[in-house]
């Protein structure tokens, strides 16, 4: 019986070998092959560490950090305010804040192009009161807005999920012992919600650092980010070797930042977790 049950893991094991492990291995091989000839080389990796590409990496990390910080600053209070509502309202507001995610991500981003554009809604309102037109679309600000819009629910939900599990008796105890609600929040709610904050940060940072669609649509693609660079290497330049090397570097970078981030996660249960 038990053996038969264990055997059920086999198909997915084979699937992972074919469609997860083999592709990753292939990518590593491509990354270590010269684009001219068949020699093994680290040149593709070395090439990336030039001022030009370092700037691309830095720009990506920079916009990802800013996006994550804004998402946290806006998302934490939102998650907290929803979590303290009466149960019925809480459920409704939570569903309402996640519902937009069910609409296609490209469509949502495209809609912002309509709002932010030179003839868009905002400029029309501004011109009605005699200002403008101002350029919003095709600026860095539009990228932040688009990323915030798309990734904010990823920040709200994990924080909310942790907040509603914090037992109210902790707060009652703190208040009985004379803590103000403000210090009870800082000393109890805040530290206990850290696992949610960390999940939220990684869920926003990861897609933000590797995005190429949002900058392309909302910034007009005039700044190169690492996602755009990878796409460019594969689809325009056809340099699969260099493209693979950049992908490997991005992967290593994301893994490394997640490892660092998880160091801050003080919650127990590490079973079945990666680190």
């Amino acid at each position: 019986m038990s053996k038969k049950v264990k055997a059920l893991a086999l198909p997915y094991g084979l699937w992972m070998i074919a469609f997860t492990l083999a592709p990753m291995a292939l990518m590593a091989i491509y990354a270590m092959r010269s684009s001219q000839g068949q020699a093994w080389t680290f040149k593709n990796f070395a090439n990336f560490f030039s001022p030009l590409y370092m700037k691309v990496l830095w720009e990506s990390v920079y916009i990802a950090i800013i996006t994550t910080a804004i998402s946290l600053a806006i998302g934490y209070p939102a998650a907290y305010f929803i979590s303290v509502l009466p149960r019925k309202q809480r459920d409704i507001f939570l569903v309402l804040s996640i519902l937009p995610m069910w609409m296609n991500f490209l469509l949502r981003t495209y809609s912002w192009m309509n709002i932010l554009g030179r003839n868009g809604l905002i400029n029309k309102m501004l011109s009605a009161i005699g200002i403008g037109p101002v350029s919003i679309l095709y600026t860095r600000g539009a990228v932040y807005l688009g990323m915030l819009y798309n990734f904010l629910p990823f920040m709200i939900y994990p924080i909310y999920a942790v907040l509603i599990k914090i037992s109210p008796s902790y707060l009652e105890a703190a208040k009985d012992l004379g803590a103000s609600s403000w210090s009870a929040f800082w000393k109890i709610t805040m530290p206990l919600s850290m696992p949610g904050v960390i999940t939220g940060i990684s869920m926003v940072f990861m897609p933000a650092v590797s995005t190429f669609v949002i900058p392309e649509l909302l910034e007009g693609g005039h700044t190169m980010y690492i996602g755009n660079l990878i796409q460019h290497q594969f689809l325009q330049k056809g340099d699969w070797n260099f493209g693979s090397a950049i992908s490997m570097i991005l992967m290593a970078f994301v893994l490394l930042s997640m490892m660092v981030l998880n160091k801050f996660d003080t919650s127990g249960s590490k079973e079945d977790a990666l680190w």
């Binding site: 897609p207 493209g243 991005l250 992967m251 997640m258």
Partner: peptide, 9 residues
């Protein structure tokens, strides 16, 4: 944990 672009490529 992999980014979409790495998985896709």
């Amino acid at each position: 944990i992999n980014t979409d672009i790495v998985t896709g490529i």
